[in-house]
């Protein structure tokens, strides 16, 4: 368990305000946020590598705020892995043992297990300069876990890797977390990392925690415009609530429930907006007629912008449906979405 209480950090031109995070023992916590949000600084402050202005950090019930980094039992893996270039892979991994009293037999077992789990036994005698990105990453993980830390901090460990291998590495990371039973805190700006690894997520922006919660909380029930936007709720409209309806630019949208506030925002994920040529009878409670105002190729899918009066809705569809529906700029089309897909705040 690792906890920060009212963490404040003040660096030249950079501040973190009142960071309160609580990560359960053995959890996999993911911290997301745009570049410059202060994610790396927060990790370094937890590890004791950046001075804290005020607040406390508690690891397994013990206040470690005043302890130097070497006494905290918090390992860190950087984006660039920071392997010691003058040491071999095995020397890198065993580096931490110089400073920790570990029984010889126990150390040997741990080393063998890590070499095996991370599949790096065959490169043990090599120098970091001769390793691939994926190998560097696994060595960095092994080095960090070799001292059996209480918490492992991961600073965007996947962002420097070839996208083709990310899936494989993600599952490797997940397995490693399971077998090591160490608390993981990972910083990323990739939603897929969060969705596939995390059991809890926090979103950070401009030195503050914008929201903390489960995956569902963050992706389905953002509490602010920033988080909604950040997690890809591309259909985000300021709305006035009247009864169980939200009114946006003269459009009346059925929410199927009565929101607590009188005005705020509604957000709909683009994949929840269905396009069709004919109105179809289903549980879709909201149906509007609009004009296609733009089509953007996003690789595996297309992002279609549909103008309904003053509002522009964004929908994601596959190339196949793009052809089947005959979606072109300027054509008329129907959009529909379930009231349960609408998040209001």
């Amino acid at each position: 368990m690792i906890k920060t209480e009212n963490f404040n950090i003040s660096l030249p031109g950079f501040n973190l305000h009142d960071i309160n995070l609580s990560i359960e023992e053995g959890g996999f916590f993911v911290l997301m946020g745009p570049t410059g949000a202060g994610k790396t600084v927060l990790l370094e402050a937890m590890a004791g590598l950046v001075p804290v202005k005020s607040g406390r950090i508690i690891v397994e019930g013990k206040d470690v705020t005043r302890l130097p980094p070497e006494k905290r039992g918090i390992s860190i893996v950087y984006q660039d892995y920071a392997l010691f270039p003058h040491l071999t892979v095995i020397e890198n991994i065993k580096y931490g043992l110089h400073f920790h009293k570990v029984d010889r037999k126990e150390a040997k077992e741990r080393l063998d297990r890590l070499l095996h789990d991370l599949d790096i036994g065959n490169i043990a005698q090599r120098f970091p300069a001769n390793l691939s990105g994926g190998e560097l990453q696994r060595v960095a993980l092994a080095r960090a876990l070799m001292i059996d830390p209480r918490v492992l901090l991961l600073d965007e460990p996947l962002s420097a890797l070839d996208p083709r291998f990310k899936e494989e590495i993600r599952s490797g990371l997940k397995r490693l977390h399971r077998v090591s039973r160490v608390t993981f805190l990972m910083v990323t700006h990739d939603f897929v990392d969060a969705l596939s690894l995390a059991n809890r997520v926090a979103v950070m922006n401009e030195g503050k925690i914008a929201q903390t919660g489960s995956i569902e909380d963050i992706f389905q029930r953002p509490i602010s415009k920033f988080v909604a936007d950040f997690v890809g709720m591309k259909n985000l409209f300021p709305a006035i609530f009247s009864g169980s309806r939200a009114i946006i630019d003269n459009l009346k949208i059925e929410l199927g429930r009565i929101p607590a506030n009188s005005h705020g925002y509604i957000a709909i994920r683009p994949e929840d907006i269905v396009l069709s040529k004919e109105p179809f009878t289903s549980s879709m409670r909201n149906l509007f007629r609009g004009i296609v105002s733009g089509i953007f190729d996003r690789g595996f899918y297309y992002e279609v912008h549909i103008r309904v009066r003053e509002a522009t809705f964004i929908s994601l569809i596959t190339k196949k449906s793009l052809f089947e529906l005959g979606v072109r700029e300027g054509v008329e089309i129907l959009i529909s979405f379930k009231s349960t897909a609408i998040h209001s705040f």
Binding site: P68, E70, R72, I76, F84, P85
Partner: peptide, 18 residues
């Protein structure tokens, strides 16, 4: 020399001098 190398070393248990 990347300061990160020193930071990692610290987090692995080495004092500033080590």
């Amino acid at each position: 020399i990347s300061p990160r190398l020193e930071k990692v070393s610290r987090s692995l248990g080495a004092s500033m001098f080590s």
